[in-house]
Simulated scan of single mutants.
Amino acid sequence: MDTAATLAFFQNFYTDAALYVVPEPVASPTEATSPALTAAPAAVAAAAAATTRVLDQLPSSGNLPQPGGAAAGSKPTPLVPPVTLPPVPVAAVVSPAPLATPVATPPPAPEAPRQATTLTLAQLPAAAAAPAGRVQPTPTQSPVAHIPFSTLGSNANGLLILVRLPAEEFRKLPRNVFLNNLLKAIRLIVEDVVLVNVEHPTYPVALCSLRQHLAARQFLAFGKNLLDVAVYTTQPYEPVLLFGDTAFLSASEISMLEYDAGRKKQLWQAVQRMFMA
């Protein structure tokens, strides 16, 4: 007889009945004489004898009695109802979408060439007459027509900016921050102007020499004695008209203007009178 199987069955069948008693720990000498503790071994022995008689009367493991008086041949009722798990959905196999045919992107249209901005001159006063005893050059004749100059830029009809700088510094002038900010304030960029470097340390360049190559009639000079027809007839930061058709404005050197707030303010007021009044 399979004692383990039989004991497991009765443990399930007699859920509330204790089939054996766990012996209590050994009592102390003072508790050994207690009547309740003295009767405990007799109770344990009686329970063990009753368990032995029940086990002897059980049939073999193949014909265990079924709970609730069921027949020996019937299928035992499970103690725990079976749990039916829901079917696991199988992910549908999705075929990959066909690759889209690449659409040819048309090349960007070429940008239209930027039109040069022509500044509208304000009503400027005429330049003063040359002092007595001074020979004033004309737009067609000048004693300094031989003075050399170099240029940067190709807008022959744009604003001319006159400077007197070493050759190395002149080549860096288009990247000058102050000059670019000034041009931006009057809605221009470096490409809209022509930079002219007077290569003589003292004498000015002749207007007649400039007009052989450049048709511009607006001049902004950063320094002294840069244009022959304006040497004796102009004042710094005072825009004037030379010979009725040439606007001219003289200011300090760019190296001085960059770090002088007072001169910057004077220049800006003069530029407003020349182009924005």
Rank of each mutant, 00 (worst) to 15 (best):
T105V: 13
T101A: 09
E238A: 14
L183F: 07
V240N: 06
Q57E: 11
P82M: 08
I186W: 07
F222K: 00
R175H: 14
T234M: 01
V177I: 09
A116W: 03
P204W: 00
T84A: 09
A261P: 01
L165R: 06
V231Y: 00
D192W: 02
L267E: 08
T151G: 07
A43C: 07
L241M: 12
P166I: 09
Q136C: 06
T84L: 14
V26I: 13
R211I: 04
V88W: 03
V83Q: 11
D228C: 06
K75H: 05
E191H: 14
Q123I: 14
A40R: 12
N197L: 05
E238K: 10
Q212A: 11
A8C: 07
R53N: 08
Q123C: 11
I186E: 09
Q266L: 13
T15I: 04
F219T: 10
V144C: 09
L55C: 06
K172N: 12
E24L: 12
P76N: 07
P89Q: 06
T151P: 01
K224C: 05
N63E: 06
P137L: 02
E258K: 03
N157R: 14
E238M: 14
Y203K: 10
Q272H: 11
T15E: 05
T33P: 00
D260N: 13
P201V: 11
V231N: 00
T101Y: 01
I161M: 13
T51Y: 05
V135K: 04
A43S: 06
V229C: 12
L64M: 14
P82C: 04
S28P: 08
A91P: 14
V80S: 05
Q57T: 12
F10N: 04
F149D: 05
L195A: 03
L55H: 07
I189V: 09
Q123T: 15
A270M: 10
R217I: 10
A109D: 10
A43P: 00
L249V: 04
S252D: 15
A4E: 08
P106W: 02
P67K: 10
H146N: 15
L188N: 07
R134H: 13
L165T: 04
P143S: 12
P102D: 04
P76G: 12
L64E: 00
G153N: 03
D56Y: 01
L121Y: 07
P41A: 06
L226F: 02
A50P: 00
A122S: 15
L124P: 06
P82N: 12
G68R: 09
A97E: 06
L188A: 07
V44N: 10
A116V: 11
Q136I: 06
L99C: 00
P166T: 08
N12T: 12
A5G: 02
S209W: 08
K172P: 05
G68M: 10
N176K: 12
C208T: 15
L162F: 08
I161P: 01
A216C: 14
N176G: 09
L195G: 06
T202N: 13
A145S: 10
K172E: 12
L173Q: 09
A5C: 01
S74W: 10
E253G: 13
T234Q: 01
N176S: 15
T3F: 09
V193N: 01
A126G: 08
V194H: 01
V193F: 06
S250G: 08
K224W: 03
V229N: 08
P102W: 02
V177N: 11
P131R: 05
A221V: 04
R164C: 13
N176A: 14
H146Y: 13
Q115P: 04
D16P: 01
